[in-house]
Amino acid sequence: MSVATETPSTQGRQRTALARLTITELRLALREPMLVFWTIAFPLVLLVIFGLIPAFKQTHAGYQGLSVLEVYVPILILLMLGLSSFYMMPTTLATYRQQGILRRLRTTPAGPARVLAAQLLITLASEIIMVAAILLLGRLAFAIPFPPAPGIWVIVALLALAVTLSLGLFVAAVAPSPGVAYAGGAILFYPLMFFAGLYVPIQSLPAALQHISHATPLGAADEAFQSAALGHWPSALALVTMAAYAVGFAVAAARLFRWE
């Protein structure tokens, strides 16, 4: 009997399996009210609240001519990426592992790697849509201009996506249970969001904390976003910091990931 010949029909079926798994994962995600609230509604609601604060619309000397609201746009994007990549995806994957869903898939031709791929795809797609939604809502509701150098801004955004996903995958890889995954997400989320300037913009922090911030994945991302918002290239150090975290944690996640 010939074995595992990759005929065109086999490849076609495997693509179908991935497509079907992705659609199913998307459907399941949309059935989780908490997930929909935190990753879709919450960042947009926060943008509206910030947008309605009159003081946030004034330009600020410390922010190189940007308004507080403009400074907060990338921070809200990082907040959305953190909620989606640190909490939602790892908790889902840890649940699938604990409940033997990945194991069951191992007994089928689809295999467990495809459900992981499907999760990554819907996380990535929803994050890209949400980035666009935040920019669009800011522009339409509060006249926040689109980034003046879109090319630079998109590169920074992609690096931010990569670094948050990679950290989330690391949590998914090492967490033995959904509870631990959730706690791991929180351990990443709060300090990293602090250094990204969620509570106080980085520019307002003491110099020492600013330096620490620039060495963290989301702090570097925020720094890079702020430069991109002004239309110029971020420091190479910020880009390298993000890329290094992204690659490092992705490699660690791939090494440590367990299907059961």
Binding site: I101, R103, R104
Partner: peptide, 9 residues
């Protein structure tokens, strides 16, 4: 399989 579940929803 023994003790293998499916996604809740």
């Amino acid at each position: 399989l023994q003790e293998s579940q499916l996604p809740a929803r």
